[in-house]
Nucleic acid binder design. Structure first.
Lengths: 217, 217
DNA sequence: CTGGATATTGGACCAAGGTCCAATTTACAA
DNA sequence: TTGTAAATTGGACCTTGGTCCAATATCCAG
């Protein structure tokens, strides 16, 4: 329910100050003294509710920028608001290129931080929703047998059953059976639905996607 | 064929220097002393080939940041590489938020600028391609009569002709006729195609899009 | 007011998709 | 070796979509 704002800063006075501010604004907070400490907090990396990270750029050990990279590579959904006392332009540009929501040099107005956090949480909510949708679709795709997946890819091209049958060198009847199972397993109420599901996970007539067969017995 | 790099900087020595560098790298260039001068160049705002803009942040009159906003509002596809002698972090962050490709404080290495320009051109090519596709689809949608557009929106929901007919309080036969015309006018070879076309311009079962009827005679 | 575009509908017909039923073969795992 | 999952196919049947043909009513602009 209540969004959690993670704080990573090596300066304890800054941590305290940030926690005070954010809690006063109704957020739940969790502070860490280093990127290493934060990374050690497994549940933090996969928050159930939309969350974000207020991150100091310059810290001993793993820097804020490096942490940003690692989180991105790990697919962690945690929009970042950078804060810094000794930043420079290239640093801020790099952070923004990597998807940071904002980059605030100290001193900043409380209002600025709160606005940035709000944007970050909105972004988190959006990304989490999209990720959840895609995960659900991929979960369904994984239930398809290799052959069903193959037929699935052909069906969304718009080809007729008889054409697909010729392509796969089987009878049209066989395609009908596979096709019906695809619709069931993908929970698609119509071909239009099936096409949209495929689009959402990036499976187009041009892009076949990955074959799930390897994990199916 | 040859990409054009537009340069906007009030310092003539900087303009000359940039033109020399970019031309030596095989680009065509066109320099302007102010944002106003650049905006006056109509063809520059709608370049046929992928192009980009190397833009000074601080200038008399319209600033670089303001120009970026104006171009964005006007829907101009011109990725921007900012250069600046007296920039600061908030300025760079704002520029990046608004979609700048890079933000280079002077002095910068020639290599840095060239890399940024290359990225900007790649982005321009991508955006232009997408924009062209969408424009073509919208052009086709505009050829639909109001009723055809309405049927189009229902068809991509996956509903049966008889269901759509009940919804619009007409006979199934009527829907068939409209539907056939929609497929023709949209140049869709299959329902799957039609659904993808609709998706590309953001018309989903939830989002009806804008009715083209007002502009059709 | 008249012609063209739009919207509507009918009939006939064929092709295509979907859905029951049931069956065989193959491959891999317990 | 036996059993389960997967792949394949057949038949019958109905629904749906697509495509010819043609016709009527409405509305708006020249």
């Amino acid at each position: 329910m209540t969004p959690t704002i993670f704080i990573v800063d090596d300066d304890s006075s800054v941590r305290k100050s940030l926690e005070r501010l954010l809690r006063a604004s109704g957020y739940q907070t969790q502070a860490f003294a280093s990127a290493e400490d934060f990374l050690a907090c497994r549940p933090c990396l996969n928050p159930k509710d939309p969350s974000c990270l207020v991150l100091d750029v310059r810290m001993p050990g793993i820097s804020g920028i490096s942490l940003q990279q690692e989180l991105a590579n790990a697919g962690v959904i945690l929009p970042i608001v950078f804060i810094t006392g000794h930043g420079n332009i290239p640093m801020s540009v790099q952070a923004m290129k990597n998807g940071a929501v904002d980059f605030l040099p100290k001193p900043f107005a409380e209002e600025e931080l709160l606005n940035a956090v709000e944007q970050a949480l909105a972004k988190a909510a959006r990304l989490q929703k999209e990720a959840a949708e895609k995960a659900e679709i991929r979960r369904r795709v994984k239930t398809l047998t290799p052959r069903e997946y193959e037929v699935f890819r052909w069906v969304i091209t718009g080809m007729l059953n008889k054409e697909i049958a010729a392509e796969l060198k089987v009878t049209e009847k066989t395609i009908k059976v596979h096709r019906a199972r695809v619709m069931q397993k993908m929970k698609a109420a119509s071909l239009a639905d099936l096409v949209r599901l495929a689009e959402k996970i990036g499976i187009t007539p041009e892009n076949p996607g990955s074959n799930p067969g390897s994990s199916v017995g």
